[in-house]
Amino acid sequence: MATKAVCVLKGDGPVQGIINFEQKESNGPVKVWGSIKGLTEGLHGFHVHEFGDNTAGCTSAGPHFNPLSRKHGGPKDEERHVGDLGNVTADKDGVADVSIEDSVISLSGDHCIIGRTLVVHEKADDLGKGGNEESTKTGNAGSRLACGVIGIAQ
Results as ranks from 00 to 15, higher is better:
Thr3Met: 14
Pro14Glu: 12
Leu127Cys: 11
Val104Thr: 13
Lys129Trp: 14
Gly115Lys: 00
Glu22Leu: 13
His121Val: 10
Lys123Asn: 11
Ile105Lys: 01
Cys7Glu: 04
Lys123His: 08
Val48Arg: 00
Val98Ala: 05
Glu41Ile: 08
Val104Arg: 11
Lys31Phe: 06
Gly17Arg: 04
His72Val: 04
Thr117His: 13
Lys4Pro: 00
His49Phe: 15
Lys76Pro: 11
Val32Gly: 02
Gly74Pro: 15
Ser26Tyr: 15
Val15Phe: 04
Glu122Lys: 11
Asn87Gln: 04
Trp33Asn: 11
Ile100Gln: 06
Asp53Val: 12
Pro63Val: 12
Ile100Gly: 06
Asp77Thr: 14
Ile113Trp: 00
Ile19Glu: 00
Asn140Gly: 10
Asp97Pro: 15
Gly42Lys: 02
Gly17Glu: 03
Gln16Asn: 12
Lys76Glu: 12
Asp102Tyr: 04
Val82Ser: 07
Val95Gln: 13
Ser60Met: 08
Gly94Thr: 02
Gly34Trp: 03
Asp91Gln: 07
Ser108Arg: 12
His49Tyr: 12
Gly74Thr: 00
Asp91Asn: 12
Phe21Gln: 00
Val104Ser: 12
Thr138Tyr: 15
Pro67His: 07
Ser108His: 12
Arg70Val: 02
Glu79Gln: 09
Thr89Asp: 05
Leu39Asn: 03
Ile113Ser: 01
Asp91Thr: 07
Glu122Arg: 10
Val15Thr: 07
His49Ser: 07
Val149Asp: 02
Ile36Asn: 01
Ala61Trp: 08
Ile150Met: 03
Ala141Leu: 09
Gly131Ala: 15
Gly17Lys: 01
Gly115Ile: 01
Gly130Trp: 08
Ile19Pro: 02
Gly17Pro: 01
Gly142Leu: 04
His47Gln: 09
Val8His: 13
Leu145Ser: 10
Arg116Cys: 11
Gly139Cys: 14
Glu134Asp: 08
Val88Ile: 15
Gln23Trp: 01
Gly28Arg: 04
Gly128Gln: 07
Asn87Glu: 04
Gly42Arg: 01
Val98Leu: 08
Val15Pro: 05
Thr55Arg: 14
Arg116Glu: 01
Gly142Val: 07
Glu133Phe: 08
Lys37Gln: 05
Thr117Glu: 12
Glu25Gly: 08
